[in-house]
Simulated assay, not measured.
Amino acid sequence: MTAHAAGHHGVFRLDSGTATRGAGRYQDTMGFTVTGPSTFLASGHPPRPVPRPARPARA
């Protein structure tokens, strides 16, 4: 059996104990519903930007 789960790190397909990221996206999925065999509706926002190292202060 295959199930789908959505969370703060994207949408995943759960199949036989393995989680596979859907569409290779890392969005923060806030709402998610399956509307058909291959159709999903989701809402949310892009992930937070990856923090960059702090730049040294200018003298």
Rank of each mutant, 00 (worst) to 15 (best):
H45Y: 11
D15L: 12
H4N: 02
P49L: 01
P49V: 13
G24I: 04
F12C: 06
A54E: 10
A3F: 11
A6K: 11
V11W: 15
H45D: 09
G7K: 04
P56H: 03
G24Y: 01
P46V: 02
M30S: 00
Y26E: 12
G10C: 09
S16P: 01
R58I: 05
A42N: 08
H8F: 12
G24M: 02
V11Q: 13
R25A: 05
A59T: 05
P53F: 14
T18E: 07
R21E: 03
A19K: 09
A5Q: 08
S38M: 10
R52T: 14
Y26R: 13
G44T: 04
P51I: 12
R55P: 09
A57C: 03
R52D: 10
V50L: 14
P51N: 09
T18N: 12
R48L: 10
G44N: 05
R55Y: 11
H8I: 07
G22R: 12
G7I: 04
Q27T: 02
L41F: 15
G31M: 07
P47R: 15
H8W: 12
R52N: 07
Y26P: 05
G44W: 05
Q27Y: 04
G10H: 05
V11T: 10
Y26Q: 05
M1I: 03
F32N: 02
P47W: 09
T2P: 00
T18R: 14
R25Q: 07
R52W: 13
L41Q: 09
R13T: 15
H9A: 12
G31P: 02
H45M: 13
P49E: 06
V34H: 01
G7H: 07
V34Y: 08
H45R: 15
Q27R: 01
H8Y: 12
D28W: 08
